[in-house]
Structures are given as structure tokens and as C-alpha cells.
């Protein structure tokens, strides 16, 4: 089970990422749980598998339109699909990696796996109740899915 401080770490990570990389703040929606079934995801999902002291996954899922704008904000002119996937993996990686500041070295993070999840559902690899942190950036919505046991 996650504590408030632990989830706060991920929320802060997301806020920090957008403030620094996109130079535009992200608004965090009220977090919620997935009590039954699987979380709904956007077109692309970057998954970081977590092992070591915790087990599970940290995912960042976002629609194509948002990734496109995000790339442009980062002065990246190449908005190809490859780069969008690259970006979503990098966001997931950065937020998870930053979490080690609080969780320590034993919070082992994998290299990102990027999935095309258009209209689909994402099944987290563990049985823990996933926490969903909605992120609203400009007119777009994305989600951070934290699923740790």
C-alpha cells in the first residue's frame, strides 16, 4: 500500500517535469483509485517496471495531441511517431527516476517500455489497487498510473 508521501513524490515529479521541460505548469486533478477492472489509457503509454524494495509499475499515458505539443514546447521539430513514443518513455523514466530521491537506490527502475494503447486498457502487472493521478496540461489530459505493492 502506498502512503501519502509516496504518491506525493510522483505528483511532485510530474509537476517538476512539466515545469522544467515544457516550461508550463501541469494541473494535477484529484487522484483516484481503480477499484475494479483496469485503468483506461490514452494513445501511448510509457511503462517503467519497478523492482527491488517495491514491486509494480509506474506508467505515464497521454494522447498523441498532447505529446505533439509537448515536443514542440521542447523545441523539437521532429514530431514523428517514433519521437512521441520516445518522449512518453522519457517522461515515465524521469518521473520514476526522480522518485529515487525519496525511495533510495533500492527502488529499481527498468528502461521504459512504450505501448500503443489506443482506445485500449492497460493491465498493471501487479494486484495492488492502481492510483491514478490525472494531469491536465493546456487543454490536454494525461494520467500517471502508480501501481506498487
Amino acid at each position: 500500500m502506498l502512503t501519502e508521501a509516496e504518491i506525493k513524490t510522483f505528483i511532485d515529479g510530474a509537476i517538476h517535469y512539466f515545469a522544467v521541460s515544457a516550461r508550463q505548469p501541469v494541473a494535477v486533478g484529484s487522484p483516484y483509485l481503480i477499484t475494479d477492472g483496469t485503468p483506461t489509457v490514452h494513445e501511448y503509454t510509457g511503462v517503467i517496471a519497478i523492482s527491488g524494495r517495491r514491486n509494480g509499475a509506474v506508467c505515464f499515458t497521454a494522447p498523441r495531441s498532447m505529446l505533439m505539443v509537448l515536443l514542440m514546447r521542447m523545441n523539437e521539430t521532429d514530431t514523428s511517431e517514433t519521437n512521441m513514443k520516445d518522449l512518453i518513455g522519457e517522461v515515465a523514466n524521469t518521473i520514476s527516476g526522480n522518485a529515487r530521491r525519496d525511495f533510495g537506490k533500492e527502488f529499481v527502475i527498468s528502461v521504459p517500455t512504450v505501448m500503443e494503447t489506443e482506445g485500449g486498457k492497460f493491465r498493471p502487472p501487479v494486484t495492488a489497487r492502481p492510483f491514478i493521478i490525472p494531469l491536465n496540461w493546456r487543454s490536454h489530459s494525461a494520467k500517471l498510473i502508480v501501481c506498487l505493492e
Partner: peptide, 22 residues
Amino acid sequence: ALADKATAVEAIRKGANGFLCK
């Protein structure tokens, strides 16, 4: 992006000269 200190120590011990966090 790895923001923990042990990692930074390890990298510097192995010969890195600076650390910039993503």
C-alpha cells in the same frame, strides 16, 4: 533521472565528473 545520492556517488566514484538531474 536517477535522483538518489547513492547513484551519484557511485557514478562519481567510477570516474564521472558531474551530475545533472533530469
